[in-house]
């Protein structure tokens, strides 16, 4: 037990000596490559992270560009479609208008024709009726009237008739 408290100078000298040699060997073969390796790996990881960050930034930029392009294209496309639609509508409208116009013209022409024919017919009919009436009255009255007086009379009668 009393030996526990002894301070042996030999042991102390040996310990210092061994410890210093131990440190020298440890630094040469152990900690130097280890710490160098650690620093190298840390640097590599740092670099890798930086590179990844850079690549990420680049990718983000490209993505944004593509997005921009895509949206412009979409806008353009919508514009084209809209224009097309407008044009088509215009065309349709134009065609319809033309058709309407032609139809109207035809109808008007037909109506005019009919009117003209009707007027001709009515004129003919009038002349026919007047001569017929004159003949008939001549026969009935057997008297010769003044032809001109007669016509006037018939005409006034016919005037009283409805036009159609």
């Amino acid at each position: 037990m009393d030996k526990i408290m002894d301070i042996e100078p030999g042991l102390m000298i040996w310990t210092i000596f061994s410890f210093l040699i131990f440190l020298a060997i440890l630094i040469k073969f152990g900690t130097k490559p280890l710490l160098n390796g650690l620093t190298a790996r840390e640097n590599r990881i740092k670099e890798a992270i930086e590179n990844a960050d850079k690549a990420n930034e680049k990718a983000q930029k490209i993505l944004k560009e593509t997005d921009d392009k895509l949206s412009t294209a979409q806008i353009e496309m919508a514009e084209i479609v809209r224009k097309g639609k407008v044009q088509a509508e215009e065309l349709i409208k134009k065609a319809g208008d033309e058709a309407d116009k032609v139809k109207k013209q035809k109808v008007e022409e037909a109506i005019r024709e009919i009117e003209r024919n009707k007027e001709i017919a009515i004129k003919q009919l009038r002349t026919e009726v007047a001569s017929l009436v004159v003949a008939a009255t001549e026969k009935i009255l057997d008297e010769t009237l003044d032809k001109e007086k007669h016509y006037k009379m018939v005409e006034s009668y016919i005037e009283k008739l409805p036009s159609n």
Binding site: F22, L26, F29, K32, L34, G37
Partner: peptide, 18 residues
């Protein structure tokens, strides 16, 4: 023991540090 362990590991680092 310490030198052996550290030397062993240190050699690994020397061979392929990354």
């Amino acid at each position: 023991v310490v030198v052996f362990l550290f030397g062993w590991v240190g050699r690994k680092y020397k061979k392929n540090p990354t």
